[in-house]
Amino acid sequence: TETYETTDETEARKIAEELKRRGLTFRIERHGTTIRIESD
């Protein structure tokens, strides 16, 4: 499991693209301005 936290929408998108490219599944949670991406 890898966890990323960012407040930057663009960075979050880049992380999501990278995880997809590596064939990982992940979920995105939003907590206020923080975007949390957690891979399975």
Results as ranks from 00 to 15, higher is better:
residue 1 T to Q: 11
residue 1 T to I: 14
residue 1 T to N: 10
residue 1 T to A: 11
residue 1 T to P: 12
residue 2 E to I: 15
residue 2 E to Y: 15
residue 2 E to H: 13
residue 2 E to C: 15
residue 2 E to R: 12
residue 2 E to P: 05
residue 3 T to A: 08
residue 3 T to H: 09
residue 3 T to Y: 14
residue 3 T to Q: 07
residue 3 T to S: 10
residue 3 T to N: 06
residue 3 T to E: 05
residue 3 T to L: 13
residue 3 T to D: 03
residue 4 Y to I: 04
residue 4 Y to R: 02
residue 4 Y to D: 01
residue 4 Y to F: 09
residue 4 Y to H: 03
residue 4 Y to L: 02
residue 5 E to L: 11
residue 5 E to G: 01
residue 5 E to T: 11
residue 5 E to S: 07
residue 5 E to A: 05
residue 5 E to I: 14
residue 5 E to N: 05
residue 5 E to H: 06
residue 6 T to V: 10
residue 6 T to W: 01
residue 6 T to D: 01
residue 6 T to Q: 01
residue 7 T to V: 06
residue 7 T to K: 08
residue 7 T to P: 03
residue 8 D to K: 03
residue 8 D to F: 04
residue 8 D to H: 04
residue 8 D to W: 04
residue 8 D to A: 02
residue 8 D to V: 04
residue 9 E to K: 06
residue 9 E to C: 13
residue 9 E to R: 06
residue 9 E to I: 10
residue 9 E to A: 09
residue 10 T to I: 11
residue 10 T to Q: 13
residue 10 T to P: 03
residue 10 T to F: 11
residue 10 T to N: 15
residue 10 T to L: 13
residue 11 E to I: 12
residue 11 E to M: 09
residue 11 E to S: 05
residue 11 E to H: 07
residue 11 E to P: 00
residue 11 E to A: 07
residue 12 A to R: 01
residue 12 A to K: 01
residue 12 A to N: 00
residue 12 A to D: 00
residue 12 A to E: 01
residue 13 R to Y: 12
residue 13 R to N: 11
residue 13 R to E: 12
residue 13 R to S: 09
residue 13 R to D: 09
residue 14 K to Y: 10
residue 14 K to R: 14
residue 14 K to L: 12
residue 15 I to N: 01
residue 15 I to T: 02
residue 15 I to W: 08
residue 15 I to Y: 10
residue 15 I to L: 05
residue 15 I to Q: 02
residue 15 I to E: 01
residue 15 I to S: 01
residue 16 A to P: 00
residue 16 A to I: 15
residue 16 A to N: 01
residue 16 A to T: 14
residue 17 E to N: 10
residue 17 E to Q: 12
residue 17 E to K: 10
residue 17 E to I: 08
residue 17 E to G: 08
residue 17 E to R: 11
residue 18 E to Y: 11
residue 18 E to P: 00
residue 18 E to Q: 09
residue 18 E to S: 11
residue 18 E to C: 13
residue 18 E to H: 09
residue 18 E to G: 08
residue 19 L to D: 00
residue 19 L to W: 06
residue 19 L to Y: 04
residue 19 L to N: 00
residue 19 L to R: 00
residue 19 L to Q: 01
residue 20 K to A: 12
residue 20 K to Y: 10
residue 20 K to N: 08
residue 20 K to R: 14
residue 20 K to W: 11
residue 21 R to T: 06
residue 21 R to E: 07
residue 21 R to C: 09
residue 21 R to Q: 08
residue 22 R to N: 04
residue 22 R to P: 01
residue 22 R to S: 04
residue 22 R to K: 07
residue 22 R to Y: 03
residue 22 R to A: 05
residue 23 G to S: 02
residue 23 G to D: 03
residue 23 G to F: 02
residue 23 G to C: 12
residue 24 L to M: 08
residue 24 L to P: 02
residue 24 L to D: 03
residue 24 L to T: 04
residue 24 L to S: 04
residue 24 L to H: 08
residue 24 L to Q: 06
residue 25 T to G: 10
residue 25 T to I: 09
residue 25 T to S: 13
residue 25 T to V: 08
residue 25 T to Y: 10
residue 25 T to F: 08
residue 25 T to K: 14
residue 25 T to M: 09
residue 25 T to C: 14
residue 25 T to W: 11
residue 26 F to G: 03
residue 26 F to M: 04
residue 26 F to E: 02
residue 26 F to C: 07
residue 26 F to A: 05
residue 26 F to P: 08
residue 26 F to R: 01
residue 26 F to K: 02
residue 27 R to K: 13
residue 27 R to I: 10
residue 27 R to P: 02
residue 27 R to Q: 06
residue 27 R to V: 09
residue 27 R to E: 04
residue 27 R to T: 13
residue 27 R to M: 05
residue 27 R to S: 07
residue 28 I to S: 03
residue 28 I to C: 12
residue 28 I to K: 02
residue 28 I to D: 02
residue 28 I to L: 05
residue 28 I to T: 06
residue 29 E to R: 08
residue 29 E to P: 00
residue 29 E to S: 14
residue 29 E to Q: 09
residue 29 E to G: 05
residue 29 E to C: 12
residue 30 R to H: 10
residue 30 R to M: 12
residue 30 R to F: 13
residue 30 R to Y: 15
residue 30 R to I: 14
residue 30 R to T: 10
residue 31 H to C: 10
residue 31 H to N: 12
residue 31 H to I: 14
residue 31 H to M: 10
residue 31 H to Y: 12
residue 31 H to W: 11
residue 31 H to D: 12
residue 32 G to S: 03
residue 32 G to K: 03
residue 32 G to L: 03
residue 32 G to Y: 02
residue 32 G to H: 04
residue 32 G to V: 01
residue 32 G to T: 02
residue 33 T to I: 10
residue 33 T to E: 11
residue 33 T to Q: 12
residue 33 T to G: 12
residue 33 T to D: 14
residue 34 T to I: 14
residue 34 T to C: 11
residue 34 T to D: 02
residue 34 T to V: 14
residue 35 I to H: 01
residue 35 I to K: 00
residue 35 I to E: 01
residue 35 I to N: 00
residue 36 R to V: 09
residue 36 R to D: 00
residue 36 R to W: 07
residue 36 R to Q: 03
residue 36 R to S: 03
residue 36 R to M: 05
residue 36 R to Y: 09
residue 36 R to K: 08
residue 37 I to M: 01
residue 37 I to S: 00
residue 37 I to R: 00
residue 37 I to V: 04
residue 37 I to E: 00
residue 37 I to H: 00
residue 37 I to L: 04
residue 37 I to T: 01
residue 37 I to W: 00
residue 37 I to P: 00
residue 38 E to W: 15
residue 38 E to M: 15
residue 38 E to H: 14
residue 38 E to A: 08
residue 38 E to R: 11
residue 38 E to N: 07
residue 38 E to S: 14
residue 38 E to P: 00
residue 38 E to Y: 15
residue 39 S to K: 06
residue 39 S to F: 14
residue 39 S to N: 03
residue 39 S to A: 15
residue 40 D to W: 15
residue 40 D to E: 12
residue 40 D to H: 13
residue 40 D to M: 15
residue 40 D to V: 14
residue 40 D to C: 14
residue 40 D to S: 14
